[in-house]
Design a protein around this nucleic acid. Structure first.
Lengths: 230, 230
DNA sequence: TACTGTATTATTGTATACAATTATACCATA
DNA sequence: TATGGTATAATTGTATACAATAATACAGTA
């Protein structure tokens, strides 16, 4: 557990600050650092074998991304995410990602077209194989390619933030279900609309896709709670 | 020009980091630090009479808010904003602020109702007096109250970021025009819809309001360009 | 002159030191 | 026992010191 960041296996190109951030982010998203838990600079610094400086900067970034709150002279604590928060995030996503694919349909480049198609083929492959880990990886890649295709710095910035929230709410699990196949079909429809340049159609399909994902997520959470009680 | 931050007139409650950020932000928004200009930590630190540490953190925040870009080991430079960026920001605002007032109409508290009404009265007053400086102040307050009224952390976070972009594009000037009166009527309509709980109506009115603001802004910019050439 | 390599400088990245603030523990006292 | 106050410790906020990297200038050579 006490691995050092300088270990070359942890990608040596990134700055220490970036590596520290990734480490803390992973811990928060995976639930190892729980909501309400205080993150003290010194403890993290010692845990990672670095000084307070990069830790401090990483914590600030965490704060800006909305995953933690800092109280002056007291420290930063991990934010919790309520059911309401999740519903709100999905409502916002439905709008903003809808706009994103609309613009993507209008502005996508040839390179991005083929990248998207290739990624979709891999998603299709791993869905058939029921390899949900790999599927999750390419699902994220698919969405990111879509965001890049709309050629908008502002939109990418906002979407990146939203996706962090989504990960925080532990959405990853949704893929481990029979919805994977339905989701694949929805992705296929969105991809086709984007590639043929049907902007409004792509937007509506994306909105529906996200709404469906929310419904599914909520059902799973309910099921999960029941299981916990049993 | 070389005022020190510790000057009590500059609000003494805030942390140094916060004060430095406000200083740099003001300089960027006002155009004193121009797009493409590199912001070096030491220079700013000396200019303000503080150490590099708070300056550094302020620059990072500027980066997260999208107003500057940092290149590893090279420094951070002020971001430019193109005409396309502005159009995109307004398109996103139309969606997100639309959602915000929709939720505000559904969730506003009594306190917020009276605050909004009071603020609107002041806007009305200063519009009649053609005091566009005060008007701008209460216009910002009006929008912020609206954002608070939707009781959503996520939405507030996103809107705050968007409004920074908008300020960056020097939108403040739009108020100095005959549109002020039209804008007041639009605000009145939005306020009424929110207060009577007509969520969808409020959303549509806000969307229109923002679209109108964009059209007006673009016309002004064109006029400004012509004047520059003359 | 054009070009390349090296020394110098400037700037960021990281670590440490110090100051200020807040939380905690402990003891005295009613 | 409960309460209040002071000393101590823990933690953040800021400043400075050091290391690493990238830009610049300049001299030497073809």
């Amino acid at each position: 557990m006490d691995f050092r960041l300088k270990d070359p296996s942890y990608s040596d190109e990134l700055s220490l600050r970036q590596q520290v951030f990734n480490y803390i982010l992973e811990a928060v998203l995976s639930g190892r650092f729980k909501p309400g838990e205080p993150l003290t600079e010194l403890k993290l610094a010692e845990e990672l074998g670095v000084s307070r400086t990069p830790v401090r900067e990483a914590l600030r970034q965490l704060e800006y991304e909305g995953l933690a709150s800092s109280i002056p002279n007291k420290g930063v604590i991990v934010n919790g995410i309520s059911e309401t928060d999740i519903e709100e995030i999905y409502a916002i996503r439905a709008l903003v990602e809808g706009l994103a694919v609309k613009w993507a349909a209008e502005r996508i480049t040839d390179k991005q077209r083929s990248d998207l198609e290739e990624t979709f083929e891999l998603m299709s492959f791993y869905t058939r194989k029921k390899d949900y880990q790999q599927l999750g990886k390419y699902d994220a890649r698919f969405h990111n390619l879509l965001f890049d295709s709309c050629q908008s710095k502002v939109l990418r910035h906002i979407l990146r933030m939203l996706m962090r929230y989504v990960e925080h709410a532990r959405i990853g699990s949704f893929r481990v279900s029979e919805r994977a196949e339905q989701a694949l079909e929805e992705h296929r429809a969105i991809l086709e609309a984007v590639l043929e340049g049907s902007a409004d159609k792509a937007r509506d399909l994306m909105t529906m896709h996200i709404n469906n994902a929310l419904v599914n997520l909520m059902e799973q959470r309910k099921a999960g709670e029941k299981k916990d009680q049993a």
